[in-house]
C-alpha cells in the first residue's frame, strides 16, 4: 500500500480562557504538521514537557477532539468526516489508544477481561464465546500473557506491568494499523519499563504496527524510536531521525531537554545546578 497512513496538516487547537470579559485564546497545539507513511511501520516519538500540547495532539489524532483549524487525515480520509456508528467503529478498529496510567484506565470494580471481551465483540466482530476467547487469547499471547492469567481478575490483582501489557493487548485485539501511546511507561516501575518498551519494538517489527510514542523521557525515546518530534508550547521546534536529533540537537529547547536528562553516568553527587533566573521569571507570570 502506498500513500500516508496519517497526515496532520497545519493542525491548530485553541482553547478559550477567561470569562466573559478579557476573553482570550490559548493555542494548545499550534500549526503542527507531520506524516506517518503507510506500509512502512515506524515508531514516531513526540517529546515535550507537560503543557507542550502532546496529549491534546493525541486526542485529536484519536478523533475525540476536533482541531480548530487544519486537518488530520487517516488513510486520506479527513477525521472530521468520520461520522456515524459504522464509520466510527471502522476508524477505531484501525487506530487504538494506550493510556498513561493503567490503574486509572481500568475501572477498579470491573474485571479486566470484560474490557477485552467488549473490544473483541465491538471491534473484532467476535460473536460466539469461543471466537471471543480466541481473539482475546491471541492478543494476550502477543504481549506475553495468556487468557488464563487474566480471566476473572480485577485490576488490583495484577501488577502494574501486567496491567499495562493487558491494556496493550486490548488495543491489539482489532489488529490496528496505528497505536497512539500517551506516556505509556511513565507510571510503570523502572524494572518493568524496559519490558514495555521492548514490546513496542516487537509490535513494530512483527505485527507491522506504527506507534506514536508520546513521552517526556528522552532516553527511552532514543532507545526505540525511528523519528522524533520535539514540541514546545504547542509548536514543533525540531523534527528528524531520532539518532540525529537526540545526539546533536539544534534548537535551544531541544538542547535544554537533552541537558536536563539525568544520566546514570554522573554517579555520586552528579551535576545538579539551579537556574534561578529563569524560574523567577516564570513565577511572576504564574502568581497573580
Amino acid at each position: 500500500m502506498s500513500g500516508d497512513l496519517l497526515e496532520a496538516g497545519h493542525v491548530t487547537k485553541s482553547f478559550a480562557i477567561g470569562g466573559l470579559f478579557g476573553r482570550g485564546h490559548f493555542n494548545a497545539v499550534d500549526d503542527v504538521s507531520f506524516t506517518v507513511q503507510a506500509g512502512r511501520p515506524e515508531i514516531l516519538a513526540i517529546i515535550g514537557e507537560s503543557g507542550s500540547g502532546k496529549t491534546t495532539l493525541a486526542r485529536m489524532i484519536l478523533n475525540t477532539l476536533a482541531p480548530t483549524s487544519g486537518a488530520i487525515r487517516f488513510r486520506g480520509e479527513e477525521l472530521l468526516e468520520v461520522r456515524g456508528r459504522k464509520r466510527r467503529l471502522d476508524f477505531m478498529r484501525q487506530v487504538q489508544p494506550i493510556l498513561q496510567n493503567p490503574y486509572e484506565a481500568f475501572n477498579p470494580l470491573r474485571r479486566v477481561d470484560r474490557y477485552l471481551y467488549a473490544s473483541a465483540v465491538r471491534l473484532a466482530g467476535a460473536q460466539s464465546q469461543k471466537a471471543r476467547d480466541e481473539a482475546v487469547d491471541a492478543a494476550l499471547q502477543k504481549v506475553g500473557l495468556s487468557l488464563a492469567e487474566v480471566k476473572g481478575r480485577f485490576p488490583h490483582e495484577l501488577s502494574g506491568g501486567q496491567l499495562q501489557r493487558t491494556a496493550i493487548a486490548r488495543a491489539l485485539i482489532s489488529s490496528p494499523a496505528l497505536i497512539v501511546a500517551d506516556e505509556p511507561v511513565s507510571m510503570v516501575d523502572a524494572s518493568l519499563r524496559m519490558s514495555i518498551v521492548n514490546l513496542f519494538q516487537r509490535l513494530r517489527d512483527e505485527l507491522q504496527v506504527s506507534i506514536l510514542y508520546i513521552t517526556h523521557d528522552l532516553a527511552t525515546a532514543y532507545y526505540i524510536s525511528d523519528r522524533v518530534i520535539i514540541m514546545q508550547k504547542g509548536k514543533v521546534v525540531e523534527t528528524g531521525p531520532a539518532r540525529e536529533v537526540l545526539i546533536h540537537p539544534q534548537h535551544p529547547y531541544s538542547i535544554l531537554l537533552k541537558e536536563s536528562v539525568l544520566s546514570p553516568d554522573d554517579v555520586g553527587r552528579g551535576r545538579l545546578t539551579l537556574e534561578h533566573d529563569g524560574e523567577a521569571m516564570r513565577l511572576e507570570r504564574i502568581v497573580r
Binding site: 501488577s159 523502572a190 524494572s191 519499563r193 519490558s195 521492548n198 532516553a219 532514543y222 532507545y223 545526539i247
Partner: peptide, 23 residues
C-alpha cells in the same frame, strides 16, 4: 545488576533485557 544494566542512555542502542516474572 539488572536495575543498573537496564537503564537506557542516550547514544547507546544495544538491546536491554527485561526481567521475567512479576514481583
Amino acid at each position: 545488576a539488572h536495575l543498573v544494566a537496564s537503564l537506557p542512555r542516550i547514544g547507546e542502542q544495544s538491546r536491554k533485557k527485561s526481567l521475567s516474572g512479576a514481583p
